[in-house]
């Protein structure tokens, strides 16, 4: 399409600059990770002394052996996968359902509901109150209490609503004329069109769930109900006095090497989600569906 038209000199230079800039930005973002990975595979002495830059020194798997040491790692990993999986699906469903009516200008009660969402986005009852909530429902030390808090983010709701508003109205109108109700229009016409936004919001929720440990710290005291991030976070906090806890293991570990390994272990799974979602970010999807 566009590439068929010859660009002017200026535009071509601009594109070159664009590529160059993006490459630099991407490298600046990548290098710390290379550094982390190198550290996580390096010997404790080299890491402590700050000798590792981008390539492992005195390679070892000690740090990983420690991070993955016991059943707690695997139970917390399983917990995080379940929380993220269930949470994202439920959250995506509720958010879509809530956002769709709000994207209709004619929806009566729209203003009141929107104001309610804005209000609750800013005002927060505090941790004592939500502790009472979970305790009353007898949900402490479960996975459900880690799913509930993030099930609907007003922020994501508003983004979703804005995306829905941007869809061509003509399509929906034609569906209505064909006799389709709101729900059928949503499921069979709107959602396929909104794939990029569903992917975006889904990513936001998944990352939110995967990274969160604030609520687990409030609600969970059973070691085997903790999520991965809490497990790693606490492990790292404690590694700073690891010599007290376990001088033998500590002799082969450094706290920054441990941190690095924990980052590698905890971010890799969720980083892999994005490239997978990227196929929904393809242009021309909208066009194709309208015409088809």
């Amino acid at each position: 399409m566009r590439s068929g038209i010859r660009d002017s000199m200026g535009v071509r230079v601009g594109k070159g600059v664009n590529y160059a800039l993006l490459t630099v930005v991407a490298l600046i973002c990548l290098l710390p990770f290379v550094h982390m990975i190198a550290k996580s595979f390096s010997g404790a002495v080299a890491v402590s002394a700050g000798k590792v830059t981008f390539w492992p020194q005195d390679p070892t798997l000690n740090t990983y052996r420690y991070v993955l040491q016991d059943g707690l790692f695997f139970s917390s990993f399983r917990n995080s996968v379940i929380i993220t999986g269930c949470g994202t699906l439920i959250a995506l469903a509720i958010t879509t359902m809530a956002a769709y009516p709000l994207s209709k200008q004619h929806f009566r009660g729209r203003k009141v509901i929107l104001l309610l969402y804005v209000f609750t986005m800013l005002f927060y009852g505090g941790m004592v109150a939500i502790y009472v909530f979970m305790r009353t429902l007898n949900l402490l030390n479960t996975l459900v209490c880690q799913i509930i808090p993030l099930v609907l983010s007003q922020y994501n709701l508003f983004v979703m609503k804005t995306f829905f508003e941007g869809l061509p109205e003509a399509i929906e109108e034609s569906a209505h004329i064909d006799g389709a109700g709101h729900i059928r229009t949503l499921v069979s016409i709107v959602l396929p069109l909104a794939l990029p936004s569903l992917a975006t919001i889904g990513l936001f929720y998944a990352v939110g769930y995967w990274n969160s440990y604030y609520h687990a710290m409030l609600f969970v005291t059973r070691p085997d109900a903790k999520p991965l991030q809490m497990y790693l976070y606490e492990l790292i906090t404690k590694t700073q006095n690891l010599f007290e806890v376990d001088p033998v293991i500590a002799a082969g570990l450094s706290s920054s090497g441990m941190q690095a390994a924990a980052i590698v272990v905890s971010t890799m799974p969720i980083l892999l989600v994005y490239p997978f979602l990227q196929r929904y970010f393809v242009k021309g999807l909208t066009i194709g569906s309208v015409k088809g």
Binding site: M127, V128, Y131, M217, L218, V220, T221, R222, P223, M230, Y233, E234, T237, K238
Partner: peptide, 17 residues
């Protein structure tokens, strides 16, 4: 059965429990 307080804000957590 053993339980553990969180590494951070342990006191608040204990009091609430």
């Amino acid at each position: 059965e053993y339980y553990m307080l969180p590494a951070e804000n342990a006191l608040e957590n204990l009091l609430m429990q």
